[in-house]
């Protein structure tokens, strides 16, 4: 198989993308951190300016690549490049930021194809300290945007929380695959067949 297997982590600066990748990667994450020149956006010393990279080796010998997209909107042009061919995306939202629902909408628009295909999950961080917006508010916003996707409170410093997000993502992809397989078994010439896409 020539195509790489990758999962993308997206979200605003400080949402925890690097931390999430560190929690599950079997290699120390390779980060392109630089001094943060945008302290108004996020008050931390360093931030990712291109991307983070981690990986997990599968039993087949293949690598599952974990990419963290840079959070600043000025790097938005990179998001579709990183998303192309991704198995799925994890969108991390920091509930302590000024407009978390606005962040959700921004990243949802950027990764809409993956969300529509059931290959995206939203993880909400810092809900303990910043309970608003509530989960209901996120669900309501997504419903207005005509998107159904999992929204899960998560502390990405905890490996178990990251694993839970990934498990939801994998189950969604699996359920969509089962649905597609059923449909392709029907007389539906317009639907893609395994031969057509592998």
């Amino acid at each position: 198989m020539s195509e790489e297997l990758k999962i993308l982590f997206a979200g605003a600066m400080g949402a925890g993308k690097t931390t999430a990748i560190r929690a599950i990667s079997e290699i120390p994450p390779i980060s392109t951190e630089a001094s943060n020149s945008d302290r108004a956006e996020c008050d931390k010393e360093e931030t990712t300016v291109a991307m983070d990279y981690g990986e997990i080796t599968l039993a087949t010998g293949e690598k599952l690549r974990l990419y963290g997209a840079p959070g600043q909107p000025r790097f938005q042009f990179m998001w579709p490049i990183l998303a192309a061919g991704a198995l799925g995306a994890v969108v991390l939202i920091d509930n302590s930021r000024a407009d978390p629902l606005g962040d959700l909408e921004l990243y949802l628009n950027a990764f809409r194809p993956l969300a529509d295909a059931g290959a995206a999950v939203v993880g909400i961080g810092r809900m303990d300290s910043f309970p608003r917006p509530t989960l209901e508010a996120y669900m309501e916003r997504l419903a207005k945007l005509d998107v159904v996707m999992p929204v899960i409170p998560a502390d990405v410093r905890r490996r178990d929380d990251v694993l839970q997000i990934l498990e939801v993502l994998l189950q969604q992809i699996e359920a969509m695959w089962a649905h597609d397989e059923t449909v392709s078994g029907d007389a539906n010439p317009g639907h893609r067949s395994p031969e057509a896409i592998s």
């Binding site: 297997l5 061919g85 198995l87 993956l114 395994p194």
Partner: peptide, 13 residues
Amino acid sequence: RKPEDAPMKVSGF
């Protein structure tokens, strides 16, 4: 809605 770059297409159905 079934976008062309859905993961199943990319990863091999």
